[in-house]
Write a protein that binds this DNA or RNA. Sequence first.
DNA 1: TTTCAACCTATTTTGTCAATAGGTTTTAAG
DNA 2: CTTAAAACCTATTGACAAAATAGGTTGAAA
Lengths: 139, 139
Amino acid sequence: MISTRGRYALRVMIDIAENGNGNYIRLDEIAIRQGISEKYLESILVILTRGNLLIGLRGKGGGYKLTKAPEEYTMKDILTLTEGGLAPVACLKDGAEPCVKKNICKTLPVWQGLNKAITDYLVGVTLADLIDKPDNYSI
Amino acid sequence: MISTRGRYALRVMIDIAENGNGNYIRLDEIAIRQGISEKYLESILVILTRGNLLIGLRGKGGGYKLTKAPEEYTMKDILTLTEGGLAPVACLKDGAEPCVKKNICKTLPVWQGLNKAITDYLVGVTLADLIDKPDNYSI
DNA sequence: TTTCAACCTATTTTGTCAATAGGTTTTAAG
DNA sequence: CTTAAAACCTATTGACAAAATAGGTTGAAA
């Protein structure tokens, strides 16, 4: 299950992509539009900023904006960062110490296959695919 | 993330498929082989039995055995039952009340696609695929 | 120099998962 | 028919992570 943090993060990225236009957007604006408390939203924006998916600017005229074009963000980028990895089991996490039963584990192939299925799908969807813009209307 | 319950359940199903040969296998045997406490294992076997993936028999000579051939169990069957569903978000769970924002939700397509990717993969792997048997040796 | 807004650290609350404990019923065998 | 074996059932505890809140700090711009 994707946690609240990851789901909100995706909504926030869409929000900024749609409303930003290259300008900085304030946290409280996003909070109102998305119906999330400012404080909780803040904890999510910290993660996105530290992960370089957003850039934050303080002071008057400050806020958050994207660091690159919507086409360049994949769902995997956003969700891996905010969920702290997407691996279905701990032993497949990035940087996990190799499991001692690695060579005899009969369930490992399932988890590896599942991991690949999830990753492959999420790499194939970008933020641009979710945004309301003329290009997205067919006929 | 697949929980301990689901991971153990899969190991248990493999254990019974490999060691059963159509006979009943006692809980304590499985517990020792798999290194799981009898009590915790019991809570998992209850789920598998109530879900008709296993059949249990009490008294002397009792234990658990499969209800059908290993080829007929998909990973989706086993994991959906023990995890209480595999949907990446609550609104896609079986029997979930339809979300009021269903028609305007910009993230829904992602979750639907992810759900399909996960399900499609897990339907394609059966318990038989994970079992040690002569047929599984190539060359 | 003042205001604004992101940034940071810590704490509380909540809920689920994991694990344990003890007693009950059914089955088969002596 | 009695006894032992084994699954079955209900409840409780413990541990941990996620969710949410609170208040103070730093940096940027007007």
